[in-house]
Amino acid sequence: MKYDPQTALIHAPRKAPQYIETVQPPLFRASTIIFKNTSALFDRHWTDDYDYSYGTHGTPTTYTLGDNIAQIEGGDYCLLAPSGLSAINLVNSCFLSHGDEVWVADNIYGPNMEHLRNLETRYNILVKVYNPIDINSFQPSDKAKLIWLEAAGSVTLEFPDLINFVKKAKEAKVLTALDNTWGAGLAFNAFDFGEEHLSVDLTIHALTKYPSGGGDVLMGSVVTQNKNLHHQLFRMHALQGIAISGDDAALVQRSLASMKIRYQQQSQSALTVLQWLKLQEQIIQVLHPADEHSAGHEYWKEVCETKQSAGLVSVIFKPEYDMTAIRSFCDNLSLFKLGFSWGGPISLVMLYNLSEMRRLPQQHLQHGLLVRFCIGLEKPEDLIQDIANALEKMNKPQSQ
């Protein structure tokens, strides 16, 4: 049958073969997915491993990325979200309800705490804060439903006693969710702590960081080994209309092959910068799990058998350096750019006032303003020289 040119353009009479073997998997952009017939439409179920029904639920592009992220993390099932925070919120929305108790580390990722405080106000969810380096501060009641773990902790990089926190949560029948962005599934396997059946229930990962690697894609993931938990999350994922674009998935997929190499380089560069920072007179404390003087170093050695760590190093300046001096230091950096996030090619820096961020006593931390360095792919000696130049130019303490 001969169609009008406009119709023929939409319903092309000839179609190139859809599948060939390529280095990168095909990119599918889809909202509507075409069913071959009514059997394909009705003989499917949303719990199928690959349910192609609508673009929000998944395409070969997004499922391929999810499978690879699950493999990297050591899990079996993965859901993708538009950002790391979106993945975190998915977990909170799925597993917390009126009257539940949720436990969060004092050094938890700030936006997660904000989200939980919002749920506390609106839905009477009780948010309890524990000290990440004191397992005795985690005392779950019979209402406890979820504990958030973070290794290493946000900004101050304490490494918790993951194994015993997970054991204690399991004994109390509390769901364990680990923000595994720092470890990236490479520093340690959160689904296998070397003891039979000991693992977290969920890992949440900001794929924005190391998996993306370019500082240009926002994405998050939730991984589990438990099919029941996965189905609960998948249902909430669908009800909330959470989805990612095929283009973004393809970009992250393309970067996965180099992620381990990038992680190793940034880990090693961070250690080089760390050793130099410890010698600087303006700095009173250096924070990094691989440093023997940092909180939780022994737990990092126990869990991270590869002795790798993300490219993050935090420092606390001596108390005589006020915010004006610290801002001067950051402004005088050249290679380090002022910005949030990490895991990309460019080194970043950010400054923090811990007195405005923490709720519990911080005996393991010195008093002073904190600066976090996120090490990129530059030569570490060049980064050290950049920091040295900025230290030389920064405003002197008022007492001098």
Rank of each mutant, 00 (worst) to 15 (best):
K318M: 02
K318A: 13
K318W: 00
P319Q: 08
P319K: 00
E320N: 13
E320M: 11
E320L: 14
E320H: 15
E320S: 14
Y321K: 09
Y321I: 07
Y321R: 04
Y321N: 03
Y321W: 13
D322T: 09
D322E: 14
M323H: 06
M323N: 10
M323G: 00
T324E: 11
T324F: 10
T324Y: 03
T324D: 14
T324N: 12
T324M: 06
T324S: 07
A325Y: 08
A325V: 03
A325D: 10
A325M: 04
I326Q: 02
I326V: 15
I326P: 04
R327S: 14
R327N: 15
R327T: 11
R327Y: 05
R327E: 15
S328L: 06
S328G: 13
S328I: 13
S328V: 08
S328T: 13
F329D: 00
F329S: 02
F329Q: 00
C330R: 12
C330Y: 01
C330L: 09
C330K: 09
D331A: 03
D331I: 00
D331V: 01
N332R: 07
N332W: 01
N332S: 09
N332K: 07
L333A: 04
L333Q: 10
L333C: 14
L333K: 13
L333N: 04
L333S: 11
S334K: 15
S334E: 11
S334G: 01
S334P: 00
L335R: 05
L335N: 06
L335I: 13
L335V: 09
F336C: 09
F336Q: 09
F336E: 03
F336M: 06
F336D: 04
K337E: 11
K337C: 08
K337F: 06
K337A: 09
L338Y: 10
L338K: 15
L338I: 15
L338D: 06
L338F: 05
L338G: 05
G339Q: 14
G339R: 08
G339L: 08
F340R: 04
F340E: 06
F340T: 10
F340C: 00
S341I: 07
S341C: 07
S341N: 02
S341V: 07
W342V: 12
W342T: 01
W342Y: 14
W342P: 00
W342D: 08
G343Q: 04
G343L: 08
G343R: 01
G344S: 15
G344I: 02
G344H: 05
P345L: 12
P345I: 07
P345F: 12
P345V: 08
I346H: 02
I346Y: 00
I346V: 15
I346P: 00
S347Q: 04
L348T: 01
L348N: 06
L348Y: 09
L348G: 01
V349M: 12
V349R: 04
V349S: 00
V349Y: 02
V349I: 15
V349C: 04
M350H: 08
M350G: 10
M350I: 07
M350P: 00
